[in-house]
Design a protein around this nucleic acid. Sequence first.
DNA 1: TACTAATTTTGTACTCATTACAATTAAGTT
DNA 2: AACTTAATTGTAATGAGTACAAAATTAGTA
Lengths: 141, 141
Amino acid sequence: MTDVQLIDTLRCSNVRPSVHRLAVLGYIANFSTHPTADEVFNAVSVDFPTVSRTTVYNSLHTLVQAGVIRELEIDSASMRYDLAHQLPHSHFRCTRCGKIFDMSLPDGLENLVKPGFVVQVTDLYFAGICPDCTVLSDQNK
Amino acid sequence: MTDVQLIDTLRCSNVRPSVHRLAVLGYIANFSTHPTADEVFNAVSVDFPTVSRTTVYNSLHTLVQAGVIRELEIDSASMRYDLAHQLPHSHFRCTRCGKIFDMSLPDGLENLVKPGFVVQVTDLYFAGICPDCTVLSDQNK
DNA sequence: TACTAATTTTGTACTCATTACAATTAAGTT
DNA sequence: AACTTAATTGTAATGAGTACAAAATTAGTA
């Protein structure tokens, strides 16, 4: 996403496009690594060395509230963030290297929920070994 | 589960059935509230007022390692625990009251993962409003 | 039973992600 | 420019979970 697109995204969601928010969103949008707050902070610090951790947390919360980004609870150690309005997809976490990969997500999973429950969020998480780490462990044999 | 069944479960998994481990497993097995470590600690403290928080954490880790219980990362605030060897099922968290409910889980979800990835764990989480909380919010209108 | 080794339990101190909050700075608006 | 609102900052606090070493308990064996 270009800066112009990022600014448009924020404006459409009624979030003022401050430089820090732009940097936070830009990192999540353009380096789709599903980063933790700490990783976002480190990335934003490169361009804005004086940015405060609190600002990064504030920006993340604002963007979540506005529905621009989404929280992933796939990693118990820390929250991870992903763009919200993408094609729905599931996530795979490699238990060796910790990387997160996008996978597909079928329609209609919410029909599994019993009547009377209102589904707001559906999250499908896988954990296991990614191809790179499989190769590595084969080499170690 | 009776105490005898709990002891058998532990013995079969090569985990010594100490009283604290029994109490931890018994609470998870018999009050299927998907409790946090803190909730387990409070429950165990009723029968064993001198138990230490560390012992509860140790027991939980031991039981997870042994495959007797399972970690649920459905709640970013704290880890939750569930019996492991049950019929596979998904989980629904009510965002109002925080309660966790069991839902069904279809077979074959791991086929969504791209070739080359080895799936070890599949977790399907829903979040939304449970029937009780829906009724409550209707009354408040 | 007594001895020894292994395991379990305990308490304390610590780490680390996240939050609370109040002061400061910046941005829009009249 | 003056005023109002929103964004940013730094520091201190919270709270889940971990590290670790000492103390207590248990199991195995002579």
